[in-house]
Design a protein around this nucleic acid. Structure first.
Lengths: 239, 239
DNA sequence: CCTCAATGGTCTCCCCCCAGACCTTTGGAC
DNA sequence: GTCCAAAGGTCTGGGGGGAGACCATTGAGG
């Protein structure tokens, strides 16, 4: 019997405790470039409300990120919690964890990413974009193409997320952010090559141009080629 | 500023309390046809483990569904919790709630559904399916096409879910199940017409044929046309 | 220099949820 | 008829998270 739907619908109601989930969320914001070094996070009271956790729990999560070197808090008016200029380097998680992710969910994540990203590109190209949205895409593209090596993954993620944003669908944006976090963990195990980055930048440009031109099919096509590259890279290194 | 990504990443860590989430999950299983009338749910101990909630919480959820007329429990060996043969009719939630969903998330849900379902159709057609998977698709198709009016929405959902299943990506299946629940709530407000069902069945057949033939682009195309119909229907009735 | 508003930091009380042991019912196997 | 395994039903103790009040710090503005 093909009862995979059972697993889909009877999957865990919650991944972990609120503390862990909150940490993950804040890391998501930082690692996907939604907040950049130097930025201030929203005030604790507001952030706790938005995340639907208590302020105590949020503070514990922030404390954990402080210890890990991601953020720093300052008291007083005009204080707040700020993202560090120097982010900690992602720890290479070798064989062990990779093997686990590989066994369970590499294909799963790659399939979902393919569906979401190509769909987002097409949907974005199908809409009439506002000037602000067009600017946003172009700014993200420019930032990515001029990024230093150490910042590349983060700015790349931010660009892809920007495409989801301009579809106007928050759920789609969330889903893309989630699947990207899953894959970035694996990608961190792979060395970034200058040559790959050049290639990537050209593809990014093609994708954004197609979206700005309102050409859904080329946008999807360009995205598809772009993803194929990363996928091949991942599989080659992990298999 | 276009900071929609902020909302995506700082969205609530948890939608409600474990009880509510568990009820939603069980309803999902029933309303999307993952478990059908007469079926037995997994034993409480096992189900609680899979959902990652305590048995107490699960039992409270089951109790709520019993009160609502969805399931019935029997003690003793070979007992268990069974889905009722006569499911309660979905309550028409008129203007008020619809307006809320409309304001917030109709476009959101429709965009995400479009991306997920067309992507799933394409991904499914791109794979080499096992005999079991092909049978599964054909069985779901047959059941939907011969469904009575009262069962149509449920079997229709089950068929679409089956397409997600045969992509081999559990995450994709989960995402589709979630978005479908959101839309079914709206669809329940719209009367089902015999004519629409006929049309729908023809489209279903085209989609499944394309998937079984291993034709990704036609599968996507057929799905796109199919979704356009429902979307037009929804918009017409709600706007 | 003083004031004040905004922000992080702390404390207390409470409730929901969990883990796990134990009880009860049921019907098939022998 | 007896036994027992598998299922639902019940109880108790403990811990994590939440709500909300309050404290401490800081820097801008008057």
């Amino acid at each position: 019997m093909v009862v995979q739907a059972d697993d889909a619908v009877f999957r865990p109601v919650r991944a972990g405790n609120p503390f862990e989930e909150t940490v993950e969320r804040l890391l998501q914001a930082i690692k996907l470039g939604v907040v950049v070094p130097g930025d201030r996070l929203p005030p604790e009271r507001e952030l706790a409300t938005r995340l639907n956790v208590s302020r105590v729990t949020l503070r514990e999560a922030i404390h954990a990120l402080t210890e890990a070197g991601y953020v720093e808090s300052r008291r007083g008016r005009y204080g707040g919690t700020f993202v560090n200029e120097q982010l900690p380097k992602p720890r290479r998680t070798p064989a062990k964890r990779l093997a686990r992710d590989l066994a369970g969910g590499l294909d799963d994540a790659l399939t979902l990413r393919f569906v979401l990203e190509t769909g987002a590109a097409e949907a974005a190209a199908s809409r009439t974009l506002t000037t602000a949205e067009r600017d946003h895409l172009e700014r993200c593209l420019a930032e990515t193409s001029t990024a230093r090596l150490a910042d590349y993954r983060r700015l790349d993620s931010r660009l892809h997320l920007a495409i989801a944003e301009v579809t106007g669908s928050p759920s789609l944006t969330s889903a893309m952010a989630d699947v990207r976090m899953r894959l970035n963990e694996l990608l961190d195990a792979i060395p970034l090559l200058e040559r790959n980055i050049d290639h990537s930048n050209h593809q990014h440009q093609a994708i954004i141009e197609a979206i700005l031109a309102g050409a859904p099919t080329p946008a999807r096509q360009s995205m598809q080629e772009h993803l194929a590259g990363t996928e091949a890279l991942l599989r080659a290194f992990l298999e």
